[in-house]
Design a binder for these strands. Sequence first.
DNA 1: CCGAAACCGTACCGGAGGTACAGTATTCCG
DNA 2: CGGAATACTGTACCTCCGGTACGGTTTCGG
Lengths: 221, 221
Amino acid sequence: MRKGDETRERILEIAEMSVLAKGFAATSIEEIIAEAGITKSGFFYHFKDKNELAHMMLKRYVCANDRVFDDVIERGHQLSDDPLQAFLISLKLLAEVMSDLPNGHPGCLIACICYQERQFDREVLNLTARSVEAWNARFRAILDNIAREHAPRDPIDFDDVADMLSCVVDGSIIMSKALSDPSRIERQVMAFRSFIKLLFSSTPQIRVPLPNSTGISGTVN
Amino acid sequence: MRKGDETRERILEIAEMSVLAKGFAATSIEEIIAEAGITKSGFFYHFKDKNELAHMMLKRYVCANDRVFDDVIERGHQLSDDPLQAFLISLKLLAEVMSDLPNGHPGCLIACICYQERQFDREVLNLTARSVEAWNARFRAILDNIAREHAPRDPIDFDDVADMLSCVVDGSIIMSKALSDPSRIERQVMAFRSFIKLLFSSTPQIRVPLPNSTGISGTVN
DNA sequence: CCGAAACCGTACCGGAGGTACAGTATTCCG
DNA sequence: CGGAATACTGTACCTCCGGTACGGTTTCGG
């Protein structure tokens, strides 16, 4: 039982790396089993077909990603009671996490699947959609929390601001791949952070209490 | 000569749609020729192999995209002399262009290639990189122009702000695919527009001439 | 030590990329 | 009008890979 899980994990890891580098169709089972040191029969013992492999890969990826986001958000809350400060800290941590990968970010499996959607069944596509929605909702809740204490300086829909984080991360991963420059991701997360700062901070140059302010004033760095 | 170009164009169009929906490897030549109404021999008359198809597809895509961006930026400049206003108009136009596609945005070929990079040769990858760099540089130049007349309210690197537009567009295309919601792209471009507004606008609530202002004041909508 | 879990070996099929090459229809140009 | 590019069609063939099937074998926990 434990040995099988270990092999599965190894297969999934190898497969994910390959899929992110070459796409799903171009990832051959023969290549995976060669790297994993098993036979084709061994592979099909664990996964009944390639589609099931995609399922398992995606589940694994979503869980791992959720853990990363949960962790940075939690650490942000631990370091500041103010929801804006906490989120700014979380974003800084997220930028660091993204740039701390030795060979650059390998890619977002969700994005990868979206660009090969016709290869996957409804279940896989539904899982990607639900996972994106869940992240967006989480970010949205954070923004709502911030807005309770800091009035936004622009009447933008918070749903769009929440979406923007995922968009910037996914977009910057693409750019980091296109330009072979891992630092782009970190810089883009920090750029989004600037947006949040500008959106919620009180006016830095001229400090005036706003009508809908809670009374808490001060600049944000 | 003209007939051949027409067939090529048809092949490239069909291939691009298929690649954006299924990925490059999963796009079979047999499927392309079936839809184009030609034979396999006809295909290999135009393209010596699949890699050459990728080349041609990418060149076509980059040209078409450049035209869209050029057009939007030019129209922005026609509608306002102020570089900030011109860019804000351009972004609004870009958002409209992105949402005016009947079946949603089919996807960005650059992003698609980046997520299947190991399938393509150096030439293709170099072309994607150069095209991304060109767009970033163009946006950067626009920001420099704006900054000559409007002081930024945050010390963020303009290179990162310029990059952000491409990132937001590519990221929102992914989200629009993941959630089957074409409107996400438009909304994200408008969210980026809010960022630009916040970054360069004079304080909207309290109108005070800034030290480095040109004297042109007023709120920006 | 037994049975389930975790594989291995082999054989086979269909489909796709790619090659080769001969033939044909269309079109352009002098 | 005629020949020469141009733009294909048709056929035949090869190889490789994904995927299926299924029986046999090792490993390991209880």
